[in-house]
Design a protein around this nucleic acid. Structure first.
Length: 204
DNA sequence: TGCCAGGCCCTCTTTAGGGCCTT
């Protein structure tokens, strides 16, 4: 893809943006011409204490969050970082909701499309044991760049997995032009029909 | 009172149910 892509990952206080959960850390990685060209990371003070499960799951403690900047400092920066980029996240529906909710509270609106590395991975790695990020990193032999369940490390590994999947489309299916339209079609394709469809789609 | 996420995807399906993924 020619476009700038930003791979995004949030750590949050829980699973439900609509139910009052908030982002506590953001990691974002910019991809241009198949390479990582920029990174953004910040902790975010949620305005309440996170429970012990989240402290253990992420390694982000209440003490760390007490000293973190608030959403109205972080999200305008993030908005500028993602401006004009196609978004990617692993299980994109999750991160998209938190991003849109936090931006909306500050009067910003996201315009750009959001692609899901989980949906693409389910179609390209049909024999993987499962499609969790950690499993796919191992399965696709992507380098581990940090601690899982920290936002920047997860965003970086998702970005490297994304590049590996784009390489797979080129290698396995000889698709040279991987544009937004193709990826949106791929996401919507039934999993079992994907392989045949991609073989028919390969560039002449 | 009792519940507590939600959307995708498969299948023993579509008048439904349950597993997967994200924190």
């Amino acid at each position: 893809m020619q476009e700038r892509i930003v791979v995004l990952d949030f750590e949050t206080t829980g699973l439900s943006a609509a139910g009052g959960d908030r982002a506590i850390e953001v990691g974002a990685v910019a991809l241009e011409n198949g390479k990582i060209t920029d990174k953004y990371q910040n902790l975010i003070q949620p305005g309440f204490k996170v429970d012990s499960f989240i402290e253990h799951y992420t390694g982000i403690t209440n003490h760390m969050l007490d000293q973190a900047p608030q959403a109205d400092e972080v999200f305008p920066e993030l908005y500028r970082f993602i401006d004009g980029s196609v978004m990617v996240a692993h299980n994109a529906g999750f991160d998209r909701k938190f991003l849109d909710m936090e931006l909306d509270q500050l009067g910003y609106t996201r315009q750009q499309p959001f692609l899901c590395s989980l949906r693409i991975a389910r179609r390209l790695y049909q024999n993987a044991p499962n499609h969790k990020l950690g499993t796919l990193v191992k399965y696709a032999k992507v380098p581990v760049t940090g601690t899982f369940h920290r936002a920047l490390a997860d965003a970086e590994m998702t970005a490297l997995l994304w590049l590996e999947m784009m390489n797979l489309l080129r290698r396995r299916y000889q698709i040279t032009e991987i544009g937004l339209h193709l990826l949106l079609q791929l996401e919507k394709k039934a999993i079992k029909q994907t392989d045949g469809w991609l073989r028919e789609t390969q560039s002449p």
